[in-house]
Design a protein around this nucleic acid. Sequence first.
DNA 1: TTCGAAAGTCAACAAGCGTTGATATCGTGG
DNA 2: CCACGATATCAACGCTTGTTGACTTTCGAA
Lengths: 209, 209
Amino acid sequence: MQHSENAQGVEDVVWAPPRRFGPRSAPARRAILEAARARFAEDGYEKTTIRAVAADAGVDPAMVMRYYGSKADLFDATVRVASDLEDLTKVPREEIGRRFARAMLGRWERGENKPEAAALRAAPTHPEAARSVQRSFNEHVLPALRRAFPDDPDIETRAGLVLTQGIGTALLRYVLEIEPVASMDYETLIEAVGASIQRHLTAPLGSAA
Amino acid sequence: MQHSENAQGVEDVVWAPPRRFGPRSAPARRAILEAARARFAEDGYEKTTIRAVAADAGVDPAMVMRYYGSKADLFDATVRVASDLEDLTKVPREEIGRRFARAMLGRWERGENKPEAAALRAAPTHPEAARSVQRSFNEHVLPALRRAFPDDPDIETRAGLVLTQGIGTALLRYVLEIEPVASMDYETLIEAVGASIQRHLTAPLGSAA
DNA sequence: TTCGAAAGTCAACAAGCGTTGATATCGTGG
DNA sequence: CCACGATATCAACGCTTGTTGACTTTCGAA
């Protein structure tokens, strides 16, 4: 079950501000970014402080500003991530819903989702984070589903519906930890969410479409 | 931190000022609560300031503290609301999903949802808001569905799944305004979300439940 | 009319925030 | 060796926040 090419834990696509900084500071920059991901994912945008990120990374707060410009820019760097979706074109059509649910929720279940968690946690109060969710839909979810259903004229509407089910599940289970969703058996959850997504992808759309 | 008068004070009340305040201040208290609802719903917990609420209500910031104790207590008063769900016992079983979707999303669509919006907007960063979502599930969603499906042993799991679909839709359409969900035709949305909820309520549950 | 409590005003505190600039230290090329 | 730019440290700035206490005004009851 491959989820991404670079299984390398922390990919070093450190969004580099030009070349004003030599390679000697790479460890510090990486430590800052890692600490920022954890803090933003856990506390959201407002409650995350530059000072706390710096302390977690073991650097001076001024270094954070030096390398990332501002708190807003640091957040942008935090949520900027590749996170490709599995190729669904070779999956049998009846299985796509389940596979999509697994691809989306698996990252959360395994805890390899700091950027997504930061974006989702911060989205309701930080507009830039909401735009990041929109971008993730435009650049990953929608294209992947379009490739799987190339001749469906309503695929955009369907993809939006898929996202409501997927993000709703992630929010309740992993961010808000609402019971019984948070403690629900994972396979049962995948089964139900996958079937719901499958329905959004294939069932007839009602009303004026 | 604490705002209690320690020795004599029996207990500090959470939401409604007991009768320590005369009826002459009722308009001000109501204006404060209304302004707080709007601000919390729009900006979330952290970005909402006592000063802004006071300005919107046309009162002095100190009045907000006087009548509601603290910012956290003001938020509690904001999200404490009845919002009963329609009685679903007389609805045909095949229609319950659609009716539930309408009951849940209709309030949002009509904008009569300030307390829910405040709770959902603030939930990812303010734990008390997340607990308010949990309470709403425990006290309204789950009982309503239990009455509609009294003999289903998995109704709690099913109700949780229903909530993932319902809250996911509300979040994307009304809070984050993610396209194409935000601009989707309302009846089309109800049809799809209602059918998904219906599926969660009636389809067999997979795996070990 | 008088008086006391309720209602409202005002200024300030202490703490925390993002951010900045001056300064010290390191590491390497000449 | 020295020098110079990159790297790191430090202290502070200006601002906003929740919250508080002293003060004045309002108003109905005695």
